[in-house]
Each structure stands twice: as C-alpha cells, then as structure tokens.
C-alpha cells in the first residue's frame, strides 16, 4: 500500500560548488529568490524574538495576580485598565491584558513546538540510523512500527496519550514527541539507505576512511537537508496540534495558557460580541504556522536538487 507522503520527496542536498560560491552561499541566494519566503523568514525570526524576550516585551505580566482584576474583564481593544495601562488588544474573560497573554502564550506554543520537534528529531535520527545500518530483522520491526504509527492520525495518538496521562506541559510535550518521531525515523532511514549504497563503492575505493568519518562527511550532510525540511514542517504541525489539543481542553493547563488555550477561552465569548478574545490569539497562531510552513516549503524547493531545475 502506498501512503503518499509530502516529505518523502527530499533526496539529498544540492552539492557541487559552482565557481567560488560555497554551497551555503548558493543556498542563501536560491532561498532569497522567493520574496514570500524571505518575508516569512523575517516573520519567523520576529516571532522567535518575541517569544524569547516575552517578559521584556509584554506590557504586563499576565501571571501576576496582583494586577489582574475581574473588573477589567472583556474590555474592548484600546480600553484603559484599572492599572492605568492601555489594553491595546483588549482584555480576556478574567481581566488579563490580551496582548501580554498572547506574547506569553506564543512563548509556550513555540517552546513546545520547537522543543518537541528537536527531541523527536534526535530520537528519530538515532532510530532511523539504527534501522538503516542494522538492516534485516531490526529494520523490519522498526519500520513496521513506524508504518503502523503513521497509519493513525497524529491527533488520535496524542489524544490517547493525554487521556491516559492527563494534562500539562510535560505530558503535552511527551505526546507531541511520540507523535513525531516516526516521521524523522522514516526520513533518516530513507536517506541513509541511499547513502549506504553509495558507501560500498566509496569504502572499496579508499579503505582508509573510518566509519565515523563516512558518517560525518557523507551521511550527515545528505541526511541533513531532508531533516531540515521535515523538521521545519513538523514544528509547524506540532504547534498546530498543541493548539488543537489545548482547544479541546486536554493539552495545557489553564495556568499555563498557550495560544490554543487562549483561543479556547475566547471561544466562550464569541456569541456575546467579544470577538477579540479569540480572534487576536487566533491571528497570532495563524501567522506563526503559515510563516513557518512557507519557509519550510521554500526550503524543500531549494534543498531538493530534483525540483531546483
């Protein structure tokens, strides 16, 4: 049975230097050919910047209960709060400044998305390499597991885990890692197998090359390109999935609201005209996911030599 996979198309990095251009320079010039991708890359950088420096950027500390008061609840964008500060994007149902809540929420969403992607990537790389190099039984058992897991939608697996484990940052992170590792494992195994075939010729030619060196010099760069692409896309997926789980009320705790939790909160007010409580966090989520995806899309085109005409 063929399962068509979006990420499978990436074979290996474009190598071979033309003139004095290093591969990295060529990558940059290829990447910047697309204006949308450049804009998206800047948006991603800005989002990461905001997330990292959230406490410095946010007008108020949404977790500071001493300044949050119910008297401020559901105020429209631009209104002045009890503390005298202007709520540029209004306040939420419990009187928190929405903009500050969003900045902190972005930090949590991004942290979980990137964090889970990085850990899943590490696990996937190790498992994928083991499968490719051990071959035989080990390989087929691992790949069976990968295939079986990938035949179930990610949301379902995350749901099963979170229902059995309960809510929370750590549990959400764990669920997202479990959901993602298989994609990386499959990607790495695929590229590693291609390289392994080449390696036979290589090692016959120069037996002096140590195994570690082959891994580092040949395998790594060729596996890297597809990994970067899959990693970017998966980060966006992870952020979306976390938001969905939090919206369903089985992801983050309300004490640590991610963008998804904020949207979920705002959803209750949608019929009472307080649109901003769900719209603004929603837009933040939208920008985050779409810009990461567009960057990933461009990376796939640039790093895939077959597509880069």
């Amino acid at each position: 049975m063929t399962v068509i996979n979006e990420d499978a198309g990436v074979a290996s990095a474009g190598q071979g230097s033309e003139g004095v251009e290093t591969p990295f320079q060529r990558f940059v010039s290829d990447f910047t050919e697309s204006k949308i991708a450049v804009v998206s890359a800047f948006v991603v950088l800005a989002i990461v910047f905001i997330a990292v420096f959230a406490p410095l950027i946010a007008p108020t500390d949404p977790y500071d209960l001493s300044i949050v008061t119910v008297a401020d609840k559901t105020m429209a964008p631009g209104a002045v709060m009890q503390s005298g500060q202007i709520a540029h994007m209004g306040t939420d149902g419990s009187g928190r400044d929405l903009l500050s809540g969003m900045i902190y929420g972005l930090r949590i969403s991004l942290g979980i998305g990137i964090g889970s992607a990085v850990v899943a990537l590490a696990i996937g790389v190790v498992v994928g390499l083991i499968a490719a190099y051990a071959g035989g039984r080990v390989d087929s058992v691992i790949m069976r597991l990968v295939d079986m897991q990938l035949s179930f939608p990610a949301i379902l697996i995350a749901l099963v885990l979170l229902v059995t484990l309960g809510k929370g940052v750590d549990k959400t992170l764990f669920a997202l890692i479990v959901v993602q590792w298989a994609y990386y494992a499959r990607t790495v195994r695929g590229s590693a197998l291609v390289e392994r075939r080449k390696e036979y010729i290589e090692s016959a030619q120069c037996l002096a090359l140590s195994k570690a060196r082959i891994l580092y010099r040949h395998l790594f760069p060729n596996v890297l390109a597809p990994l970067i692409v899959v990693g970017t896309m998966q980060t966006a997926h992870a952020i979306a999935l976390e938001a969905t789980l939090s919206f369903l009320g089985i992801g983050m705790e309300q004490t640590e609201p991610s963008l998804g939790s904020l949207i979920s909160n705002g959803f209750q007010y949608i019929h009472s005209g307080h649109y901003w409580i769900s719209i603004f966090p929603g837009l933040a989520l939208l920008f985050t996911i779409v810009s990461i995806n567009l960057v990933g899309d461009r990376l796939r085109d640039v790093l895939n030599p077959r597509l880069a005409k």
Partner: peptide, 14 residues
C-alpha cells in the same frame, strides 16, 4: 497550502 497549515478548530471558529 492554507488548507494544509491552518488548524481545523481555528478555521471552524472563523
């Protein structure tokens, strides 16, 4: 591309 990347619940709310 949008259909792929936007979370279902978000589109639903919109």
């Amino acid at each position: 591309i949008l259909g792929f990347s936007l979370p279902t619940f978000w589109v639903g709310i919109m």
